[in-house]
Design a protein around this nucleic acid. Structure first.
Lengths: 193, 193
DNA sequence: GTCGTAAGTCATCGATCGATGACAAAGACT
DNA sequence: AGTCTTTGTCATCGATCGATGACTTACGAC
């Protein structure tokens, strides 16, 4: 059923592969059911190993969650001197329209939203969104209220992610990506004084 | 400590008052820690009563959660023949800028986001957002791609709520409401073909 | 005042959860 | 081949959770 299952060859012992399988299963489970809705036994079953290994390799369920989030960050987004419209477009492609077949299918940011009940997760979400994205966005706005305008762009992009990943609205996935990009660009452009 | 505590008068027996205290405590707890992060004993302790009464009055924890969400819906939002800009402004005041001192301090929609790990909550969120708000919004757009444009407005408003209630960004609460309304109006207006 | 019904409390169950330590077995190294 | 380290498994603990049923106490009808 799971990936590790049809690897039912003699079941070689491979620390790295097991760790990776656990991380992958954790990402999927956490992405779908959130932190509280996911048990370590379910993750281990998906990965095809014993639940004990989670604690051996990661220390605790929370540490596994953190590791699953920290996994990979694309990093190289947006040119340094691009305007807000181009920057928003780059973020749009990465966070909202991105495919991400590797993970649970969602951007780590949207993955965190399924666990928004945990204060630590919200703290990390706050840090990531504000320090990482909004500050960068605000720097690309000229004139007054740059922070407010950056916040609105961030809200639009985050809201689109929530619409797709949490609310489950079928509009965005079914829409023509080029039309979406054009509409979003128009909205962001409306913020340039 | 809680409301019911300084009502430490002889502790009259009042079904309606107890039910109401439980509902209120539940709203606060669920709003802050989500469904999974909240225990029935905590809710009961906040309300100053025994946890058993939750099951007697509501049946189950899940039923209490549903009752806490269904609580009160303002209903009368937006004139029937207003355009998308006016409608978005009305929603903005209700969902994002609304004070709501009565509940846990948040709109039920944002309250649900803290429990987004539960599939049933997402289903209800989907139903509420799509059928209740987006359909209404789409009807106010002329021309093609009305659904997509309504979705983008919804994403912006929902994203603003997420920014404040989940991410915890200080920008929106600190900003001048009139400036916020003006900026949002500009973004929505940019969608009118 | 008495009595019955409804409101509140107590003890406890069964399941599930994260986590631990002892044990078995496979691969590596000499 | 023999040993030792690493990898995986099993049994189980202690806490917590939602939920149930029996018991106690207050209020209101008469």
């Amino acid at each position: 059923m799971t990936y590790a299952d049809f690897m039912n060859a003699p079941k070689r012992r491979d620390r790295a592969a097991t760790r990776s399988a656990l991380l992958d299963a954790a990402r999927r489970r956490f992405a779908e059911h959130g932190f509280d809705g996911t048990g370590v036994r379910e993750i281990a079953a998906d990965a095809g190993v014993d639940a004990t290994l989670i604690f051996r390799y990661f220390g605790s369920k929370k540490d596994l969650f953190d590791a699953a989030l920290t996994a990979e960050v694309p990093e190289g987004l947006g040119e340094k001197d691009a305007g807000p419209v181009e920057f928003a477009d780059a973020l749009l492609k990465e966070v909202v329209l991105g495919d991400r077949a590797g993970d649970g299918g969602e951007h780590p940011l949207l993955l965190m939203l399924r666990s928004a009940g945990r204060p630590e997760v919200r703290a990390r979400l706050h840090e990531e969104v504000c320090d990482r994205y909004l500050a960068d966005m605000a720097a690309r706005f000229d004139g007054e209220d740059a922070e407010l305008r950056a916040e609105l762009v961030g809200a639009l992009l985050l809201g689109m992610g929530v619409m797709r990943a949490v609310v489950g609205s079928p509009v965005l996935p079914d829409a023509d990506p080029e039309k979406v990009r054009a509409r979003v660009a128009a909205m962001v452009a409306a913020l340039e004084t």
